[in-house]
Design a protein around this nucleic acid. Structure first.
Length: 561
DNA sequence: GCCGTTTTCGGCCCGACTGTTTTCAGTCG
């Protein structure tokens, strides 16, 4: 078992304990342990053997990890005497269902999984039972349909890190030449059907031994096995290639299918054939392009980044796409003044290490009290702190805020406070289940505020968990264009908000995009890489992206000059 | 359960919204 699978088990155990009515802090402790395990760079073996200690993983969590390693989830559940069914944690995925409602469903209605809930909802047998109004049932039906997608696919935020970890393990094996991620994850598909890798080997024995040790099932073209929780496993598929075939094997497994067919069609027109046996020239001789670049070159095309490979991918010139080097700074970062974990000097240090020209400190505003949001007084106090830190920093600091868009579309801080800030990001954090027209009017009202520069995570989606609020995005885009307000591409892999379709619509309408990490913890600055890849899916060029501007250019733009 | 101590026990993010049990428990961010 790898870190991801164990962390998933830990989270599931925490959910089951919470449903069982266990102490809230104990539940939180196991969730923290799962997060600490994922964030730790130490090897699993070293953590278990206690040769290193990880903050957040105490003796009990360590035992739990051992039980999971030895006997899986069942064993851990037995040790902790958990009596609710293992699948019951799925109920907590549904917005509006917490531990108490989950327990009522299990005990009073014999509903102990997402599938059982869907069946109960469609049979209408929950209707008018205490706590289940007609409106609530209607909403749950919609949400459960979204969530059931998770039963056969996995969010990219889990698949990509798991893929990189697997890549490192495979690269360490002798006899292995090249290892690469492929399939959905390589194209940054938000919900991946499985985790796919390509491996080229010059000596198959060590790799085969490793696969057998991991209980992998042999397939025609490689191996397959499952990781993650047993009731919702992630399938891992590894394709094995001879070293000269690595590039073509990775290209044909990356997809998407339509892009592949287009390329194969162009190859045929150019006199080549691409069958199971590989690419052959017009005389039927095998050719083995060493890179994907060489395959595209056979048909006179430049290299297409995987994220661009879709039914419409060839319409965009990849040379114009925004690149990581174009990014001059991060415009959405939280400090420990609200719910970030880093102090402002620590954020500055990170930004300087990353070589950024500027960074905007954008903490939450007062109504988000759980996040210790800033009151007007604390905004002023923070300005003084920024001034002090700026005097010793080379990176330019922007004083910003992520101000809440309240239920009626007004903002959570008075205009005179917003007026003096360098950048104002306005975001929705509460009252997300408004009607489409209410939510649209709410966002439009926020965009019309003269001090708003960016709309943060504009649809509120959480990939695989929440569809996002219902909103007339065309109207929002049109209004943003009219008022020169940028839309955020939130690079957090759980959000990737806005989607590629909305990105294209926005840029066509002339709306600027801010690619932001929304960083709360040190390792989240790295999420910019997801942002860039998502930008490729949305065909963003350097000119479309607000934070490719120089500091001078950005300040001019923000001041409306 | 974990952490951090003034070291073995106290503290741990808290207020708004929602549906409805119409007075507040449950959920959420």
């Amino acid at each position: 078992m790898n870190k991801q699978s164990i962390a998933a088990n830990l989270r599931q155990i925490a959910d089951l304990l919470e449903i069982s009515g266990e102490n809230h802090y104990k539940v939180t402790a196991y969730r923290n342990a799962a997060a600490a395990l994922l964030q730790s760079s130490f090897r699993l073996e070293d953590i278990i053997s206690r040769s290193v200690s990880v903050p957040g993983i105490g003796p009990d969590s360590l035992n739990l990890i051992r039980w999971c390693m030895e006997g899986g989830l069942k064993s851990a559940m037995a040790h902790l005497k958990i009596s609710v069914p293992a699948t019951a944690h799925q109920l907590l995925w549904v917005p509006g269902i917490g531990p108490k409602t989950a327990m009522v469903l299990i005990h009073n209605h014999h509903v102990d999984s997402l599938a059982a809930l869907q069946a109960a909802l469609s049979s209408n047998r929950l209707l008018h039972k205490p706590g289940f109004s007609a409106a609530k049932i209607h909403r749950m039906k919609r949400d459960v349909a979204v969530l059931l997608e998770r039963m056969h696919s996995y969010p990219i935020a889990q698949v990509w890190p798991a893929a990189l970890e697997l890549q490192r393990s495979l690269e360490a094996l002798s006899g292995v030449d090249q290892v690469g991620v492929t399939g959905d994850a390589r194209r940054l598909v938000p919900m991946c059907k499985r985790l796919e890798m390509v491996v080229s080997v010059h000596d198959r024995t060590p790799f085969q031994t490793w696969c057998e040790a991991n209980h992998a099932t042999p397939k025609d073209d490689g191996y397959e096995w499952n990781i993650g929780p047993s009731d919702n496993p992630l399938t891992v598929r590894v394709y094995v290639a001879d070293p000269p075939d690595f590039a073509q094997r990775q290209m044909e497994t990356t997809g998407d299918q339509i892009h592949d067919e287009v390329i194969k069609g162009l190859l045929r027109q150019a006199g080549y054939s691409w069958t199971k046996a590989g690419i052959c020239d017009m005389r039927g001789r095998r050719i083995s392009p060493a890179t994907e670049e060489e395959i595209y070159a056979l048909v006179g095309l430049p290299f297409f980044p995987p994220e661009l490979r879709s039914d419409r991918g060839l319409l965009q010139n990849p040379a114009t796409l925004v690149q990581a080097d174009d990014i001059q700074g991060d415009l959405h970062v939280h400090s420990n003044w609200s719910d970030g974990s880093m102090s402002i000097p620590e954020l500055v240090e990170r930004a300087e290490t990353l070589g950024y020209a500027y960074i905007a400190i954008t903490d939450h505003s007062q109504s988000l009290s759980i996040a210790n949001g800033l009151t007007p007084e604390r905004v002023l106090a923070q300005r003084a702190e920024l001034k002090r830190v700026q005097s010793a920093a080379s990176v330019k600091l922007l004083h910003g805020i992520e101000v809440d868009i309240l239920a009626d579309g007004s903002l959570d801080l008075p205009d005179d406070i917003l007026a003096d800030l360098d950048i104002v990001i306005a975001s929705v954090h509460g009252a997300m289940y408004q009607s489409k027209s209410q939510m649209t009017n709410r966002l439009v009202r926020a965009i019309r505020n003269p001090y708003v520069d960016v709309i943060g995570h504009p649809t509120g989606r959480i990939i695989g968990r929440r569809a996002g609020y219902e909103v007339d995005i065309e109207k929002v885009v049109a209004e943003a264009a009219l008022h020169g307000v940028a839309l955020e591409l939130n690079a957090n892999p759980n959000r990737l908000d806005i989607s590629e379709d909305i990105l294209r619509r926005a840029t066509q309408a002339g709306v600027a995009i801010a690619i932001d990490t929304d960083t709360h913890h040190p390792n989240e600055f790295a999420n910019m890489a997801y942002g860039i890849r998502m930008a490729h899916r949305g065909w963003l060029t350097k000119g479309d992206v607000l934070n490719t501007l120089s500091h001078t250019g950005l300040m001019k733009r923000l001041k409306g000059q």
